[in-house]
């Protein structure tokens, strides 16, 4: 894909070898541009989480560089990445209310509860949980916890949202609903998203581009652009175009998995 827009973040020749010798990523290149919705699709162990953690700065690459061309740098030379991260598990603090959990990223920046209130309530409204602000995480269902986690990620209005199989543990109905929520929020807020998933259907439904990865060593084997303009909804899920893309992505995934007899 050739695109003249300047990428928000650009991975160049990223490799990651763990201390036990596992090569989790080998020579990965990826440009992420403003407004893109990129899915990392691949079998278990192909380095999707590792790639995401490297982008987030939670892990360091063994070789290669991660560039943030338009980011500002702090005095220590660290880029201000303006990232939102949604983990596979909701990762909420059980001792804090929903409100307290969403406040956290702002609180860490030194913003008081009063000053943050409007932003927090807005984020909770976006995920439909404003009524549950004073509830504790244990009082929520799995899907609701995940939505709190999303609200927490978007409360700082990040430039880029990284999601690591956020819906893997949820049932299909909840998952479809949250998929639609994500698409709606993306429409409203103009998000740039990197989304890790195992699911071909989910990746086609959500993405503007699918990056197919293979394992051992983890690497990118194919990129599929999903050229479907306009807002997507349930009718897209049943359309012929959708089915075609799914077949294409599925074939690429099988080729990736067959390449190293991984099942």
């Amino acid at each position: 894909m050739t695109d003249s827009r300047k990428p928000i973040v650009s991975l160049k020749a990223i490799s990651k070898t763990f201390s036990n010798g596992t090569v989790a990523l080998s020579d990965m290149a990826l440009d992420i541009r403003q407004g893109e919705f990129i899915s990392l699709l691949g079998p278990s162990g192909c380095g999707k989480s590792t790639a995401l953690r490297i982008i987030a700065g939670l892990a360091t690459a063994s070789t290669g560089t991660v560039d943030w061309p338009s980011a500002t740098y702090d005095p220590d030379g660290r880029p201000d990445r303006e990232i939102g991260f949604v983990f596979q598990e909701p990762t909420l603090m059980p001792w804090a209310t929903v409100f307290g959990n969403v406040w956290l990223p702002l609180r860490l920046k030194g913003i008081s509860k009063a000053a943050a209130r409007a932003d927090i309530m807005h984020a909770l409204e976006l995920v439909g949980l404003a009524k549950f602000a004073e509830s504790y995480p244990r009082e929520l269902s799995g899907g609701m916890k995940m939505r709190v986690s999303i609200a927490r990620a978007l409360v700082t209005q990040p430039k880029i949202l990284l999601m690591d199989e956020p819906f893997a543990a949820l049932d299909e109905i909840t998952r479809f609903k949250l998929n639609n929520d994500i698409l709606r929020l993306r429409e409203q807020l103009g998000w740039t998203v990197v989304f890790v998933t195992h699911s071909v259907f989910e990746s086609v439904y959500l993405s503007s581009r699918i990056v197919v990865m293979a394992a051992r060593p983890g690497r990118v084997v194919a990129e599929i652009d999903i050229d479907v303009p306009g807002p997507r909804g349930e009718d897209f899920r049943t359309s012929e175009v959708y089915a075609q893309y799914c077949r294409k992505a599925s074939d690429a995934l099988h080729a990736a998995m067959g390449a190293n007899d991984h099942l």
């Binding site: 987030a56 939670l58 598990e89 990762t91 956290l104 860490l108």
Partner: peptide
């Protein structure tokens, strides 16, 4: 994961 989250937000 929570430790990572805190690290992420510096």
């Amino acid at each position: 994961n929570l430790l990572d989250l805190f690290k992420l937000y510096r």
